[in-house]
Design a binder for these strands. Structure first.
Lengths: 346, 346
DNA sequence: TTAATTCATGTTAGCGCTGTCATTTCGGGG
DNA sequence: CCCCGAAATGACAGCGCTAACATGAATTAA
C-alpha cells in the first residue's frame, strides 16, 4: 500500500484540498475501493468496516466527486432538458414534472433554453451531450438535421415532449394538438356556435398552436363552416395581446359568436377585454382557450378550455426512460391526453 | 507514439464506441493534446494543423467529453441552481435571468427544487456539489447548519438570491423585503388609506412575505396605526386563495379601506373577488400586491403593486460571479431594488 | 556561425473514481 | 486436519481529458 495521502505536485497549494476517497480510506484504514463500495451500497461489507468508514465520511464531510465517478463508470446521473422558454408557464410546469420524476432516483436536470431558435437548440444539444447525460428530454420536433443526427447517434434515450403529431427519434410524450383543435371545434359546434373567430399569436415558433388551428379548421370544414374572422398578433402569446387582438377581431368581424384563442394566456386577455367592453362572455360571445392554466380557472368566470397535462408529460417521459434505459427498436408514443374543461365562457 | 486506436478490453463491445480525442488525433495524425488545444483555443497552432484537425472533428462528429475534461482540469462549466419551486412564476423568472447570464459563457445550470423544505435543500446541495460546479446559486437564507457548512467549505462562489435582509455566505442579490413592505405602508398612507387589511398566505416557508409584512406593520406603527384586519390562508399563495381570503377579510372587517396582499397572485384573486362582489377597486377598496407580475398589469384595472426585478436578480448574480471567480474577503450584497407601480387599484 | 528565442507539437503523469480480477480469511463437511 | 466455497477486502489498470514540462524546427539576434 503506497502512502495514501501523498499528493501530486500538480495540485495548487493554495486553499485546503477537497477531501477524496483516498483520504477517507486512509482515515478508516481500508482501501479506496472499499469506501467506494460502501458509499454505493454494492458488494458484501462487514458491519464493523461500514461503521468505521461511515464515521470517517461524516467526520471529514466527504462529498463524492460524481465527475470522477461518471468518468470511471460511464454511468451519469445527469439528464439534459431542453425547452424553448421559461416565460410561458407551460414549460416550468413540464420541468416540474421532469423534476418530480427524476427526484427519487437522484438524477439531476441540466437545463437549456432555446428561445424557440433551432440554431440555439443545436448548440445546446451538443453542449449538453458533452456531459454524457443518461437521457435527453427536448420539447418539440423541430430540430435541425444536425441536431437530429446528434440525438440519434448519442445512443442515449431521447424524449421529445408536448406533441405526438410526428414520429419521434425514440420516445414522444404529449398529446395530439391537431386532435385537441378538432375536438375544440366539435365541442363548440355542439354547443351551437357557428360563427367562429380565431385569436392567435405568431406560430412560426409555435408549431403546436398551428396544429390546433389546423384541427379546428378541419372540424369547421367537416361541418361545412369556415372561420368568420381571424386576428393574429405578431409576437408571442400574452394576456395583453389576447386583449387587444380580441378587440381587433370584434372590430373587423363584429358578428362572430365565439372566439377561439391560441392558448389560455390569450384567452384570459380576451376575458379581460370583455370585462372592459361590457361584453358578457357566453351570452354575448363564447371564449375558448387551450391549456387549462390555473389563472383561467381562477377568473370570476371559469375559462372554457382544454386541459393539457403538462406536469404529467414531464413525469411520464422521465418514468418511461428510467424504467427502460435502452432505446426500444421502434419509436414509442405516449399520449397523455387532454380533457375539455366546461367553464363558464363558452 | 503508441497505437492510438488500441482500445481497452474493458469496453463493452456492443454498439459503436463513442468517438474520443484519441480517435480524432489518430485521424488527423497529431497527438491528442494538439486536438485538445485546438478545440479549446489555447496555445499556438499552425493553420494547416488546425484545418486538418477540424476536418477530422467534423467528419467524425466528435463531441468532447466534458466529464473527462472537468476531471482533468478541475474547471467545471456547470452551475448549481437551487430554488424552492417552479409553480410560483417568480422562480422561473429568476431562472431565466440566471440562464441569460450563463448563456454567453457556455455554463449550464443544474437545477434542484427544494419544495420549500430545508432537508431537501440539504440533500440537493450535497448532490449538486458532487458535480463540482463552478458556482452555486440558491434562493433564500434559510439553510440548515449542515447546508451552510457545506456551501461555506465548498470554496466555490455562492449566491443567495431574492433577499438582502441577512448576511450571506458570500454574495446576496435581491431586494430588502422589509423595506419594500415599509414603503408599501408609506405609499398607501400618503394616498390617504388608514384602515389596513392584510391578506396573506402561509409564511412558514416564505420568509420574505413575512419580512414584507413586518415592514408594513412597522410603517403603520410609525404613523400610529395598526392592522384593522387580517386574513391568512393555510397553504401557499394562489389566485384562488386571494379571492376567498379577501372575502373572508371583508366579512370579518368590513370597514377596511385598503387590502394589502402578500403578493400579486393573491392580489389578482382579490381583484377578481371585487369584480364578482361588485366592489370597485380604489373607490370602494384599495388593493395592493407585490412583485409586479405581468398578469397584474394585464388586468382590466392595472394592479397597484411593487415591482421586484426577478430576472435582474438572476442575471446580476451570475454576472457578478463570472466576473470574479474567487470569493471576496467579506460577503457582498447587491441591491436590485424595487419600484412602486402606481396602478389603478390603490 | 552560434546561441538565444519563438513557434509548434509531443510526452508524461495524473484528475478521483470504479470494473475486473485477485487474495485473504473463516467455518464446516469429509 | 485439509479442502472448499462464501464472505470480505484489496491491487491494478484505465475512463477521456488536460497541466506541466520537454522537444524539435524555424527564426532571429549577435
Amino acid at each position: 500500500m503506497s502512502a495514501p495521502s501523498e499528493r501530486s505536485k500538480r495540485r495548487r497549494s493554495t486553499g485546503q484540498q477537497p477531501i477524496t476517497l483516498s483520504d477517507v480510506a486512509a482515515r478508516a484504514k481500508v482501501s479506496e475501493i472499499t469506501v467506494s463500495r460502501i458509499l454505493r451500497g454494492v458488494g458484501p461489507i462487514a458491519d464493523s468496516t461500514r461503521e468505521r468508514v461511515m464515521e470517517a465520511v461524516d467526520a471529514m464531510g466527504y462529498v463524492p466527486n460524481r465527475v470522477a465517478g461518471t468518468l470511471a463508470s460511464s454511468v451519469s446521473s445527469l439528464v439534459g432538458v431542453i425547452i424553448p422558454s421559461l416565460s410561458n408557464i407551460v414549460f416550468p410546469e413540464v420541468l416540474q414534472g421532469i423534476n418530480a420524476g427524476l427526484e427519487p432516483s437522484g438524477y439531476r436536470p441540466v437545463v437549456g433554453i432555446t428561445d424557440y431558435d433551432a440554431t440555439t437548440e443545436e448548440k445546446l444539444v451538443a453542449s449538453l451531450l458533452a456531459w454524457k447525460p443518461a437521457a435527453m428530454i427536448i420539447a418539440g420536433f423541430d430540430h435541425t438535421p444536425m441536431t437530429r443526427r446528434r440525438l440519434q447517434t448519442s445512443g442515449i434515450r431521447i424524449a421529445e415532449l408536448m406533441d405526438i403529431d410526428a414520429t419521434p427519434i425514440d420516445l414522444a410524450v404529449g398529446l395530439s394538438h391537431r386532435a385537441a383543435g378538432y375536438d375544440t371545434g366539435r365541442h363548440l359546434l355542439r354547443r351551437g356556435y357557428r360563427r367562429f373567430g380565431y385569436v392567435g399569436h405568431d406560430w412560426s415558433a409555435d408549431r403546436r398552436a398551428k396544429l390546433r388551428y389546423d384541427g379546428l379548421r378541419q372540424a369547421l370544414c367537416d361541418a361545412g363552416h369556415v372561420f368568420a374572422g381571424e386576428a393574429m398578433t405578431q409576437g408571442p402569446s400574452s394576456t395583453g395581446a389576447g386583449r387587444s387582438m380580441l378587440d381587433a377581431l370584434l372590430r373587423s368581424s363584429p358578428d362572430v359568436d365565439v372566439a377561439v384563442f391560441s392558448n389560455d394566456d390569450m384567452a384570459v386577455g380576451g376575458v379581460f377585454h370583455c370585462m372592459t367592453a361590457g361584453i358578457t362572455p357566453k351570452r354575448d360571445l363564447g371564449l375558448f382557450g387551450f391549456n387549462g392554466l390555473d389563472i383561467g380557472q381562477a377568473l370570476p368566470l371559469r375559462l372554457s378550455t382544454i386541459r393539457s397535462n403538462r406536469f404529467l408529460i414531464g413525469r411520464m417521459a422521465v418514468e418511461k426512460m428510467l424504467q427502460q434505459s435502452e432505446r426500444p427498436g421502434t419509436p414509442e408514443i405516449i399520449d397523455t391526453g387532454y380533457e375539455i374543461v366546461e367553464g363558464e365562457t363558452a
